[in-house]
Amino acid sequence: MESLQVYLDGLFKDVPPSSAVRQAKADLLAAMEDHYHDALARGLSASEALGEVIGSVGSIDEVLAALDVHPKTSEATQAPEALTTEDVQTYWQATLHYAAGLGLGVALCIASVALAVLFDGNPDSDALSAISFLLAVAGGVASIIFATTHRRRIARGLRQYAVTSSINRFAARRLEAYQRPRMIGLVAGITCCICSIIPAIIIADNLGAVLLLFMVAIGVFYMIYVQAINNGYKRLAEARPGQLFH
């Protein structure tokens, strides 16, 4: 009965193999199979019989205690290693690249429309309009994907380490120090977005719309960039000491 074997293998997955453990698994499997066939003989369906057997298995902890076997989780219960300042610097460096990549990606997607508008209207440059639009969108999406996967890879490598109170304080200081650049970046970004309306008003033709979109793209880039970096510091500054980095 493969389902029971798979279920039992799952229960014993953290248990170091030994002859006693193999015998225990064989005996439990035999008892579970006997139970399963007994349930079928009582008129239960295959899925009901399987449910009844699995429901009656109990905890393997008592079996391991009887066998005097200790699961590998004893390693996992040891205190995890702490994050070092080098680890968090690596993470923040990756966050910096992520912020730039994400900001650039979104900005390129917005700018792609501007490029399409810029080359639009001229019969000779229709193809150029389409190509520049597609290239900008593709570049933007690639930049977002690359930025996200790179930072995720770095963050995953640090998940086994615990946040310490000194890392907490270190991150809190960096977060505090970053508030001024963040505010400047946000103000610059918002100003860019608001001022983008000016060329659209002054220049009536397509060029006005193109400048509007470029300015919005630049404004959005600034806002995303500073906010993503800020979140990188905040993530560690607000993590509880002792918990694993996530």
Partner: peptide, 25 residues
């Protein structure tokens, strides 16, 4: 194993059933 378990369940008119891991341990 299972025969012992069945004997206990039957002997107590289904009032008491040993879990497989409890029986085995």
């Amino acid at each position: 194993g299972f025969e012992i378990s069945k004997a206990i369940t039957a002997g107590t008119n289904d009032a008491y059933t040993l879990r497989e891991t409890t029986l085995y341990s």
